[in-house]
């Protein structure tokens, strides 16, 4: 595995302090697991095997239990994601209000299909389940921001702007183009830009 690698992940000082505080909230350390996985994802971009090993060590849990939990939750990323995670609701309320046209526009502007990440690491496109703002459908979420009453034209403008912003920001930390890196790339480390 990766412990000998020069870029073995380490939590930042701020995150280490946060973990100490989180552990006071729960009578068992596993209670802090999901909160700590959120911190890890925020710092490292996604939950690679070395990152999950780090979390396991930090909370004194088995790697298996960390993996089992991480695998269960869709918002915990088990592979690299784009800088902008474009999540379009296609459930009933948004479908009734034209979400198919919203998805079509996203595919056209980004040139990728739902479930894919652009090769520059800037965009991941995904159809998601109900975001529970149905009175303002159609809705979508990009990273932590909600967008309501979206139209194909407003989405084109939004994504075009993000393409410009993204060109300056570059991908997330931990970005690996899986198509180039091949299988098990994260086992070799070496891709952390943090």
């Amino acid at each position: 595995m990766s412990e000998a690698m020069p870029d073995t992940p380490q939590f930042s000082t701020a995150n280490k302090q946060k973990i100490v505080e989180l552990l006071t909230r729960y009578p068992r350390s596993q209670g802090a697991l999901i909160p700590v996985l959120w911190l890890a994802q925020d710092q490292f971009g996604w939950l690679s095997t070395p990152v999950m090993e780090l979390v396991a060590a930090e909370l004194k849990l088995s790697v298996t239990s960390v993996l089992a939990t991480a695998m269960f939750y869709t918002m915990l990323y088990k592979k690299p994601h784009g800088r902008f995670h474009v999540q379009i609701c296609t459930n009933v309320s948004c479908y009734l209000r034209g979400s198919d046209d919203i998805v079509a526009m996203a595919r056209e502007v980004l040139g990728i299909e739902p479930g894919q990440t652009s090769s520059d690491g800037l965009f991941t496109l995904e159809e998601v389940q109900c975001l529970c703002a149905c009175e303002r459908a159609p809705t979508l979420q990009i990273n932590q921001d909600d967008y309501f009453r979206v139209t194909p034209e407003s989405l084109r403008e939004l994504l075009t702007n993000l393409q410009t912003v993204g060109a300056k920001l570059g991908p997330r930390p931990g970005w690996v183009d899986e198509a180039l890196a091949g299988h098990g790339s994260h086992e070799h480390g070496g891709h952390h830009h943090a």
């Binding site: 068992r28 697991l33 999901i34 089992a68 939990t69 269960f72 939750y73 869709t74 915990l76």
Partner: peptide, 21 residues
């Protein structure tokens, strides 16, 4: 939570607070 509708079921929610699937 972290993206799992089933955690609205009260015992699944409890499991999730405990850090489990």
């Amino acid at each position: 939570g972290a993206g799992a509708y089933i955690c609205g079921e009260e015992t699944a929610l409890i499991e999730s607070i405990e850090g489990k699937p």
